[in-house]
Amino acid sequence: MVSDLVSIWNIRTSERSYTVNYDVKEWVSSLPFSKPEIEILPHGIDVPELLRQTEQSVGSTSEHKFILCYVGSFKDYHCLQPLIQAISRLREDDYDVGLSLVGTGPELNSIRKAVEQHEISSATTFHGFVDPSKVPKYIRSADASYGVIDPERTGSPMKVYEYLANGTPVIATSGEEFDFIEKEQIGVLIEEPTSKAVVNAIKAIYNIPESERSEMEDRVRDVGYKNGVTWAEFANRVITE
């Protein structure tokens, strides 16, 4: 592809290379004539105020005891089908879990059908496209957020950092970039995006007492600030090195 050729040319002619994760670093390292200095700079976010967020979570007006939020594009690699199946299984087991879906995308209709087929329409809200400035409100109204991607896909979801910056525990795909999530006890990582794995991840957060969950929200923000970086901060770091 043209984009790959451009990337290879840039890598070979640069003094230093930066990659978004370990998989890309390995690819860059495998290229002939690639420079030995390769540093990982994970995805940043474009909304600095998210990382500086200090206000408390917005109280949810939901009738459900626990709300799980997803924000982003409706695409296969975001593994929304296992999420729908997991919510259905949890509700069958009397877990009062509601689902808040923010965004749109090519798989929106299939997700709507899956919600109907699994009979969780009454527990699911499709908010559609939301102005980016208003997205934090939806994240902070949730008890946890979903940032799982297909582990075969190279890359990491920027939404995970945005979730953390807004104080919600996260469910994400296991990987070295996100090791800090379990180390700091601010979410759950899963190896494979199966409905069973998602069920267990949601249960782990659902069963945390509300008093401890409130304390966790403050810890999540602190960790989000410490580990999340904006694109502007990345650029300044590259320029000054």
Rank of each mutant, 00 (worst) to 15 (best):
F180A: 10
I202E: 03
T54N: 14
D76Y: 14
Q185S: 15
K134Y: 10
V130R: 06
A235Q: 02
E233R: 09
V2K: 11
A232R: 13
W231Y: 14
C79L: 03
L41C: 05
N109F: 06
S60W: 00
D222E: 15
H43S: 13
I139R: 08
V223K: 08
Q53G: 00
N10F: 11
I111R: 04
M1I: 02
S14T: 01
V24D: 01
A204T: 11
R52K: 13
Q56A: 13
S57W: 02
T125W: 01
E15P: 00
A114C: 10
N236T: 02
Y163L: 04
E119I: 00
C69E: 07
D96R: 00
I202Q: 03
S100V: 00
Q53S: 07
N236V: 00
L83T: 03
R89K: 15
L80D: 04
P48W: 05
R16K: 14
E39Q: 12
S100M: 06
M216C: 07
W231C: 06
T13D: 00
V58I: 15
S62G: 05
I186C: 12
E15W: 04
E184Q: 15
V229E: 12
S3Q: 10
I181G: 07
E116Y: 09
G72P: 12
K65H: 02
P82V: 02
S156G: 04
Y22Q: 12
I208E: 08
I40C: 09
T19F: 07
I8M: 05
I111L: 11
Q185L: 11
V170G: 10
S88F: 12
L80V: 07
D143M: 09
I8T: 01
I87V: 15
E63D: 11
I239D: 07
R221F: 07
A142S: 15
T154W: 08
T104E: 10
S145T: 00
K203G: 01
Y95C: 02
E233Q: 15
Y146R: 05
W9L: 04
M216L: 15
A123V: 01
F180G: 09
I202N: 00
I67V: 11
P106K: 13
D4Q: 06
L83W: 06
E210N: 14
I186V: 15
V170L: 08
L50D: 10
P132Y: 04
E15K: 15
S211W: 02
K65C: 00
H43T: 08
I171S: 09
T104M: 05
Y70C: 05
F178L: 14
G103C: 08
K35G: 12
I186Y: 08
R89L: 12
S7H: 01
R89P: 01
P136N: 06
D131F: 11
E215T: 06
E182V: 15
T173E: 09
E92H: 11
V24S: 05
T240P: 00
N166G: 07
L51S: 05
G44I: 04
P106M: 07
K75M: 13
V71F: 01
A235S: 09
Y22F: 10
S121V: 08
Q185M: 13
P136L: 09
N227S: 09
F33V: 01
K183R: 14
V71E: 04
L101I: 03
S73L: 14
S73D: 13
A144K: 09
V20I: 15
S73M: 13
V2I: 12
E119V: 01
T168P: 14
V223C: 09
